[in-house]
Amino acid sequence: MKHSVQLLLTVLVVLVTSTVWATPFDHNDHLSILEGEPCLTCHIEDGETIIPDQKVCLECHEGDWLEEVTFSGTKTHGASWALSHRAVAKAKTIDCASCHQQSDCLDCHKAGFADEVGEFSNNMNNIHRSDFHVSHPIAARTNPQLCTSCHESAYCSDCHNDFRRTSLAGASHQRSFSSLTVGASGPAHAKFNESQCQTCHPDSILPSHEWTTGHAREARKNLVTCQACHPEGDVCIKCHSARSGLGANPHPKDWDNIDGRMRRASNGRTCRKCH
């Protein structure tokens, strides 16, 4: 009864003031006037889209009102909404639960086959396109937080452990070190045989002939892809340890400003791997 009276009063207020509300349509005003009423009052259940049909407006407004008012587009639920809703959903600026159930979220935010992200019939915005075994390196090398927002690195290594390293597309894993010279004017590495590697590169990975100087650029570009196959980073330490190998310093330029926090956080556990 109380709700009916409230609704009746609301309708009266809307009818009385509707002429004042000439263009444009103001959603916030409707939220104030219909305070306490569910979103489904206008966004009716089984509506064709999130934008209410104009016959819904006529439940409260006269037909003339529709001719005077102009409607803006929705700030949400665009064509690529499945990929762009993160900021709005996290900020809770709209109440997703007023229309959606948690199962709607779980349509995408769950484990499963790549084609199952989104609708069963394959969501238009599913980033796992075609045979994603083939095309996923593109996604993996763009935003470094993209894959890790859903997958652990072990998810990658399950497949990548089965690859021959030389079949990987990355230039870092190709055998191209032989043309490199020793120093600026020294002989090319092709002049040496494998038994001589340890002379200059003690305990390094270089004798395996599968590593090049190009790996530094690729690693900096997206270090997460390295971790996908080398989760513990043991292969890195072969050369980058301060105690063995080439002793190549892998730290960023501002490392002196950071190392204290990292050391305290890990209780020096990470430092001891190399130092």
Partner: peptide, 10 residues
């Protein structure tokens, strides 16, 4: 911070 990757330049 417990991963060796946390100390690399990116």
């Amino acid at each position: 911070s417990t991963s060796i990757y946390s100390i690399f330049a990116v």
